[in-house]
Design a protein around this nucleic acid. Structure first.
Lengths: 162, 162
DNA sequence: CGCTCGACTGTTATAATATAACATCAATGC
DNA sequence: GCATTGATGTTATATTATAACAGTCGAGCG
């Protein structure tokens, strides 16, 4: 099941569905690729999906340690490396953070709209952006790689609040 | 001033001209805005322009310290903050680095094509990319801010070498 | 069964990037 | 002179990320 609506999630949406969908899609994708979605990896993915905002590795670490466990940074970074490798999360360079990918398995680039005020983000796939980027690249003899293109701005809610 | 690997935009070019142009444009822009392009700020900008590759703050620091001076990180970061504020350099989040802006004063977003193999970059301004991004933003009720959009790929030289 | 092999995780230490906080200095205007 | 302001110096530390090696655990195999 995909997200009910495109765009920024409604404040009152049933977020449990988002998490459940993401975990199910991850399990399916790992099974298909012969990759092991271990406990830690699934837990990290779940924390990444605990909101619609990119989350830092050390915040993930803190969240996982709330039950008294003492995990070390490499544990989280290794899980994140795995999730990145299998397209289950995006690295958000502009924020040194990580964001759950709602539709793993892109062949091409995807765009991430990131609100600089509230920090929430949404993944979009815009044909025209990809096409324009590809065109620009061609003109400069440049080969574009699949990637996450980060676009910063203000979401509707933050604009309304201002 | 020779850079180890020539950038993909201009394999062999008179790089002194790039630096001189950049410094002249910076001086002009600072004068117009009543901002002080001090010695350190100019030196940092010069180091940023020493190649066509984004350079890290600590590499700038090392470069400035080659004559025996012992500068501290805040000195470089403050100069970079100034240069960012006045649009003279771009922050390249995907590489934790900084890149000289050849045409300060953009009203809109610019794109940076960054080669993941040799690290070279080139700034481009593609109307169709901006338009497509603006369209995508509108569809998601999102207000795009002026920014540097980073696009990763492989330059022609690196493709040829492979 | 006992073994080895490889993938995963634990642990310690440290690298790399960035900023906070406060001291000093220099130019300007009064 | 002297206060104000902006720039830089200095020290310490925060934040993000990785290196290196040890231990664990299960699958496959003799």
């Amino acid at each position: 099941m995909a997200h009910p609506k495109p765009g920024f999630p409604e404040p009152e949406h049933n977020h449990g569905v988002c998490v459940a969908d993401a975990l199910a899609a991850a399990a399916e994708r790992c099974a298909a690729r012969g990759a092991r979605l271990t406990d830690i990896r699934r837990e990290v993915l779940e924390v990444v999906w605990s909101s619609h905002r990119p989350i830092g590795a050390y915040d993930i670490l803190a969240d996982l340690g709330r039950d008294g466990r003492r995990l070390a940074p490499p544990t989280v970074y290794r899980a994140l490396d795995f999730l990145l490798e299998h397209g289950l999360v995006h690295r958000v360079a502009s924020r040194n953070a990580f964001f759950g990918c709602p539709s793993p398995g892109h062949a091409t680039a995807v765009e991430l709209l990131i609100c600089t005020e509230c920090g929430s983000a949404v993944e979009v796939q815009e044909q025209r952006v990809s096409a324009a980027v590809a065109g620009a690249a061609t003109r400069h003899d440049f080969e574009v790689l699949p990637q996450t293109i980060e676009i910063l701005g203000r979401c509707a809610a933050c604009r309304a609040a201002a």
